[in-house]
Design a protein around this nucleic acid. Structure first.
Lengths: 353, 353
DNA sequence: GTGAAAGCGCTAACAT
DNA sequence: ATGTTAGCGCTTTCAC
């Protein structure tokens, strides 16, 4: 890389004009400047718990402005036992679904005056544990965990006494609050849509979950097939990534029974599959139709645009945050399941209106 | 949504087995349990600044484990004046480029034992300011700012006494450390590549920046054209988003002079443009070739795969973090410019090997 | 309506 | 090698 400028720091003899006290301004400075006690400053800053005379308040506000005072959150946290911060543990902020979720969580938290400590576990259980522990030691008021695992036995260990809600978790988790979507119904609706287009051999491109629960998406796919009296199509398993989907697509193309439609358990996988299909010269949706699960924005811009089962990420994030720090914190094991909506585009065979 | 389980919290009469002291375990508890002073516990936990006898250390470690002690970061931060936390302000974590950057920043920070407070400003200056202020009051040790603006006059105001480095900032910023890429050279190389394919009418799809600096990408595009003796192609301006690109693409298709190639200032815009092109039945790259700037993973999976100028996000993130909290914190205005690499795929007209 | 002061959990200088 | 203790900036009870 090229270094453009390299100006040594000028001696920090900052002009001691109105603000003689160099270094952070504390509540004490404000009190002195305003000619009141430190308690009063607190009352003003926090609008309570005691009332202050309007005149006094004005003086304090003035001092605050002049001195450029900003309360020290660390001290406040120490005193109050709350950092007004929540932690978020996701597998990978590079994955559009999770980055959207993270953004939504940030918004929801900010609305309540909470900040967000973001950590990625990179699909790595060890890292996930470390992140949780780290967040706990940082006194976050709670953590939202999008676990690598289906059954977060780990949370049992680590979270011990820290409030936790499982996000993007669609199985039951005794002892935990959790929020997720109805994977089963969502997948089923997508596969039924594919069946509606006349497909009879519908493959499943499933993501690999650590854990031995049967994923709702797999069940939904199967159920739709069964109810329609259709045979179980081929299954390929891969990571929940574009690259995983790409590989899965190639395997599917090489398999004995060729599906005429594919249901993918995530948009990312579908996108990888579509690339494999394009490269092989197959037309989508005419040779092979495809539908997926997630509803990320990226799915709107693939070619052809991807029909996908949309998860209400904002709502889920909001629910997770409010389960964590909203009212009713005393509930211990509540499982919120959000419905999905099928977003019909052209990859399934539907035409533009 | 559907509520599945709703089990009321069981009375928190947790078994007081080995751990009578309910509530958070403090260093005092550990000291008492281990039969040492609190100072010794500190020495053990922090591996210094004094040495402790191996036997004592073992006792303390034991107490820590048994009691499940975890240091209180808030107290530590108050005492030390450092939270070991940095703040990141980005326009939108939903944008793949920024989510990648955020992930990279998190990694780099974690490596140094720092946590990451993430905030989105949603392209909104007011929000950006609020975020910075909020981070400052939370005593972060520094903030990495990917500003909405080209000239962060604001930082002047807000960051006042908080260490700041500008990330993804390719213009000079006196008084600030910053890291960015060589927009000019990157854009120029992409346009030259397009020229190499024989194109003579090359449009520019530029993102809209608040600020009156001429973007390096625009200059690079122009320079490549000029050097090749080519006329300036049409310019369309839009947001740095897929939707922005889509609209830009439609405008381009409707314009008087039809380009045979387009250079887009971001992958997102290129992706939107490609959709517009596909919908209009234009073939890429045969009817219209396209190249872009950013090098996000998504560009690898468009159809056809997008030729794009790759920014070294990890390296940039690492540099930003180390400028903030690594050694040499005393440098005040250093501008790091990273080189880009042209990632040639098929959207420009190159064929698969 | 305002102020004095205790103490949140921790670190480290200073004693022993 | 270990212990004592002041104090980081804040909130809030209790006195006035």
């Amino acid at each position: 890389m090229r270094r453009v400028l390299l100006i040594p720091k000028m001696d920090s003899m900052t002009s001691p004009v109105a603000q003689a006290t160099r270094g952070p301004v504390t509540r004490k400075d404000v009190a002195r400047y305003a000619g009141v006690s430190t308690a009063v400053v607190s009352y003003v800053v926090n609008k309570g718990p005691k009332k202050v005379a309007p005149a006094t308040e004005a003086k304090v506000q003035d001092a605050i402005r002049v001195l450029g005072y900003r309360p020290n959150a660390a001290a406040r946290a120490l005193k109050l036992g709350s950092t007004e911060t929540i932690g978020l543990v996701i597998p990978d902020n590079g994955n559009p679904f999770f980055s959207l979720l993270a953004h939504a969580v940030e918004d929801a938290a900010a609305e309540l005056g909470y900040a967000l400590l973001l950590t990625n576990s990179d699909g790595n259980l060890t890292k996930e544990r470390r992140n949780i522990r780290n967040l706990a030691s940082r006194q976050v008021d709670g953590v939202i965990l999008s676990s690598v695992l289906m059954e977060p036995d780990l949370a049992d260990l680590e979270s011990a006494d820290i409030r936790t809600v499982l996000l993007n978790h669609s199985a039951d988790a005794p002892g935990f609050n959790s929020v997720g979507v109805d994977l089963f119904a969502g997948a089923k609706s997508a596969v039924e849509h594919l069946i509606g287009h006349g497909h009879t051999t519908i493959a499943l491109a499933m993501g690999t979950n650590a854990g031995n629960f049967l994923d709702g998406r797999e069940q939904g796919w199967l159920q739709a097939l069964t109810e329609a009296g259709l045979p179980e199509g081929p299954i390929v398993r891969s990571l929940f990534t574009r690259a995983g989907g790409y590989a899965a697509g190639q395997r599917l193309l090489a398999s004995a029974i060729q599906p005429t439609a594919i249901f993918a358990s995530s948009d990312m996988q579908a996108i990888g599959i579509m690339r494999a299909l394009h490269e092989a010269g197959r037309s989508i949706p005419d040779d092979i139709a495809i539908a997926a699960f997630d509803g990320s924005e990226e799915a709107e811009y693939t070619w052809p645009p991807l029909t996908t089962v949309k998860q209400p990420a904002q709502a889920m994030a909001k629910a997770a945050v409010s389960a964590l720090i909203g009212g009713r914190r005393n509930v211990n094991s509540e499982h919120l399941i959000f419905p999905t909506t099928l977003q019909v585009r052209q990859s399934c065979g539907c035409r533009r209106i």
